[in-house]
Design a protein around this nucleic acid. Structure first.
Lengths: 118, 118
DNA sequence: ATTGTAAATTCGTATAAATTAAGATATGAT
DNA sequence: ATCATATCTTAATTTATACGAATTTACAAT
């Protein structure tokens, strides 16, 4: 296999992880995994500005992680493939097994796994 | 569960993904998963400057993803827990299933999975 | 057309990350 | 102690990302 193709792959991997390297975007993917939400719903859930929500969604959409559906003045979003969160799940499991000594964090992980149906 | 704990968790997750959001660091973790290597080995494998290698290793070490062992003038590195790469693996699988239409990239993914014993 | 609401975009700025080059440490050999 | 090699650190630069404020677009209702 050519070095170029490998480099392309590693770059695309790193870009994918960059999408997940923001707490708000992880939350958005988790929310949209379960139900369709419009921008305002997400804004309320995350308690961040509308502009930030839109910009996160733009990034996620650009990388095909979410898709939109316009309905009147509202735009509803869902994850393109709910399997995105398996990556988050594997990271959670890894952190729980190897990185966390803080019991509160472990509790949070367990609760999140439950909420997200992992 | 308190919002604060959840926020801490999401932040720690995003920081973990940030570590993986660089092609060189993904490569390093993949290499060190299989065998112990010193800084020069890694430099040769990645074809980047020694300083860059050191800084990547510093980051990874700071976050307990790799550990070092000094032997004479050389410092040998290994991954702290080879399960880190399960996260990479899940990302690879997700990309292969959902994001990639480029057949060359799919071939690269398969070859990489083989090389890394996924 | 005008107004109101939802969402997207633009722009300026602040912060963080990546990168290189140069200098500093550490170790082993002579 | 001196020298050579391996690695680390620091400083300076560039590049990327995050964020808020303000503006603009899109749509619906009147």
């Amino acid at each position: 296999m050519s070095k170029e193709n490998f480099d392309k792959l590693f770059k695309s991997m790193s870009e994918f992880f960059a999408l997940l390297s923001n707490p708000d975007r992880i939350k958005i993917l988790g929310l949209l995994k379960e139900k369709e939400m419009d921008v305002n719903d997400i804004q309320v859930a995350l308690e961040i500005s509308q502009s930030r929500v839109s910009q996160h969604l733009k990034l996620l959409k650009l990388n095909s992680l979410v898709k939109e559906r316009r309905c009147g003045r509202n735009v509803y979003y869902t994850v393109t493939d709910s399997r995105v969160t398996t990556v988050v799940q594997s990271a959670l499991q890894f952190q729980m097994l190897c990185m966390t000594t803080d019991l509160n964090v472990i509790d949070s992980i367990n609760e999140l796994m439950h909420i997200w149906h992992f």
